[in-house]
């Protein structure tokens, strides 16, 4: 328990970190946080020192509603889950500091987020496309890529 409270204290020391009220069980998380992008490396270091792993990293295209991309980091520890979802809101087209120095897994996760959604990560050692074909010039998971769902349904005859 002391470990968890140590983590909470360390997280409270980060100025731009805002922690939401206790999330409900459906979210699958024990803690939801939002942090400014300049502090994400600090947050990563806190979690790393507490023995947490970077379980998931992805991005969301929220440009329609907020003109911003959300980068979602999910930290978890081994054993009984203590899952913390940390969100960084970044204006479209701007970069986020990379966690690749802290977590080995961040290297590929960030490449994937770059490939799929075009989020750039500052300080990444090798930020190139990972999944799409060579020479691709698109970021497929952006909402304005491809056909809108309604149009797709029409085209499929549905």
């Amino acid at each position: 328990m002391s470990e968890a409270s140590g983590l909470a204290a360390a997280l409270a020391g980060i100025a731009s970190l805002k922690t939401a009220e206790a999330p409900d069980a459906k979210s699958g998380c024990q803690g939801l946080h939002t942090v400014g992008r300049e502090a994400i490396v600090e947050v990563g270091r806190v979690f790393r020192e507490a023995g947490y792993m970077l379980e998931m990293l992805t991005a969301l295209d929220m440009r329609a509603a907020e003109q911003a991309m959300h980068v979602v980091y999910q930290f978890n520890r081994f054993g009984a889950p203590d899952r913390h979802r940390v969100r960084v809101v970044v204006p479209a087209g701007e970069a986020v500091p990379s966690l690749a120095d802290l977590f080995g897994s961040a290297n590929w996760y960030e490449r994937e987020a770059f490939d799929m959604l075009g989020v750039r990560f500052d300080g990444h050692p090798y930020l190139v496309r990972i999944l799409t074909e060579e020479g691709a010039d698109y970021h497929p998971l952006l909402k304005d890529f491809g056909v809108a769902p309604a149009a797709a349904e029409e085209a499929a005859g549905g």
Partner: peptide, 18 residues
């Protein structure tokens, strides 16, 4: 294990019963 978030049998072969 922590650096890469290894899971499954690979992790259990490291001695972690997760």
């Amino acid at each position: 294990a922590q650096q890469f978030g290894i899971t499954g049998p690979c992790l259990r072969a490291m001695g972690m019963a997760r």
